[in-house]
Simulated scan of single mutants.
Amino acid sequence: MKAMILREANKLKLEEKETPNPGSKEVVVQLRAAALNRRDLMVVQGRYPGMQLPAIPGSDGAGVVIAVGDEVNNVRNGEEVIINPGLHWGNDRNKKRADFSILGNPTDGTYAQYVKVPAENIYSKPSHLSWEEAAALPLAGLTAYRALVTKGRVKKGETVLIPGVGGGVATYLVQFASALGADVYVTSSKEEKIEEAKLFGATGGVNYTSDDWSEELQKLTGGIDLSIDSIGGEVFKTLVSLGKIGSRIVSFGATRGPVPNLLLPSMTVKEISVIGSTMGSSQDFADMVKFVEKHKIRPILDKTFSLEEATEALWRLEKGENLGKIILSIPQD
């Protein structure tokens, strides 16, 4: 099979590799499309904790099952599927096991024509989605669903803030929160991204390069019930100031690093809950897929590249040029 293989940092190369065979509880999927995540970028740059080389990056993918293990009875050859990239979460929905990992390192991932995964990580592809849309759903969709619904406990009519709209998780957060009847606001450094976000569910937004963006947002919203944050840094302090009494902040990342000089009394007086979230359980994934099917949600796609253009695609992701998910089209021969 053809695969993009990483043998040293920042050097992805299209190579031929033996097609995998399934273990007794595994399946092999012939991929039709894969999608990029920031985790892939960290792996390719050699910055991901515990990574191993050589490796085939990629966590997201959709395709057709072409081989099943002897003990697999819940998946059939020829089934159109998407892959839950979270491996070995365990039976406790509230927390992952110590050996939890994500497809794409150290386990070979989806930047390839075929991928081998545990049968329990296979789910039927929602019929209303194209291959590209289906491939875009798993990691970001799961992360967004758990942060918003399982951890954030969003309610109809609440005001929800999504800082830094543009990436895959943020676009799902807007779509999911809107579908659940929340009033959704976003921030971005680009006015066009705010306008685009309004097309898929946002009520409004502000440009965070403005000196008074938090004051603008306060006037627009009257305060925030639930913020879903992946930025951290000084932005997190602003989320505290915007929060209503009894509000929640769910954090699933911190691209700007730790929060400096956080004033805990501000959180105490407002009784703000801060909740960490990451990926999600198999139940979260199943619930997310059902939710997408029920509301006929279609992932927001940015641009599609060929498999051998993976490095160029990652460069686009690193520069933050995308709105929605970047896709790799996988060749079938």
Results as ranks from 00 to 15, higher is better:
L53V: 02
N91H: 14
A34D: 05
T19K: 12
V44N: 01
P54M: 02
L31T: 07
L36G: 06
G78K: 08
K25I: 12
V28K: 08
R39C: 04
G46L: 01
T19F: 00
N73P: 04
G90W: 08
V64K: 05
N37C: 10
G58M: 04
L31A: 11
A33Q: 10
G90Q: 10
P22W: 08
A33T: 10
G69L: 08
E80D: 14
I83W: 05
Q52W: 02
V43N: 00
I66V: 13
Y48E: 00
M51I: 07
V27P: 13
V64S: 01
W89C: 09
V72C: 03
D92T: 14
R47L: 11
G23H: 11
R76H: 13
I83M: 10
E16A: 09
R47Y: 01
V75G: 11
G50H: 08
V43Q: 01
S24P: 14
P57Y: 01
G86N: 13
D60S: 06
N91S: 15
D70G: 10
N77D: 09
D92A: 14
E18H: 01
E80N: 12
T19L: 05
N73L: 06
K17D: 05
I56G: 00
D60F: 02
R76E: 15
N84F: 11
Q45M: 03
N91K: 15
A33H: 10
G78T: 07
G23F: 10
G50E: 06
R93D: 15
N74H: 14
R38N: 07
G69Y: 05
V81G: 08
R32H: 15
G86R: 07
N21Q: 15
Q45W: 00
M51R: 12
H88L: 14
P22D: 09
I83E: 09
G78A: 07
E71G: 06
I56V: 11
R38F: 10
V65I: 13
N77E: 14
R39K: 04
G78P: 07
I56L: 00
E79K: 10
G63K: 06
L36F: 00
N77V: 15
H88F: 14
W89Q: 07
E18L: 02
G86P: 08
K17Y: 11
G69D: 11
G46N: 03
G23K: 14
P20M: 06
L36S: 06
P22N: 09
P22I: 07
N74G: 15
H88E: 13
R39Y: 02
V44D: 03
V64G: 02
E79F: 10
I56Y: 00
E71D: 15
G58T: 02
G86W: 07
G78F: 04
V65H: 05
V75A: 12
P54N: 01
G69V: 08
N37Q: 03
N37D: 05
P57Q: 02
Q30M: 13
A67Y: 04
E71K: 13
L41M: 03
E80L: 09
V72G: 03
R93K: 14
A67T: 01
D70C: 06
V65W: 02
A55N: 10
I66M: 01
L87W: 11
N91V: 13
D60K: 02
N84E: 13
Y48T: 00
P20I: 05
A34F: 06
N74Y: 07
G50V: 04
G90M: 09
E80P: 09
A33W: 11
M51H: 12
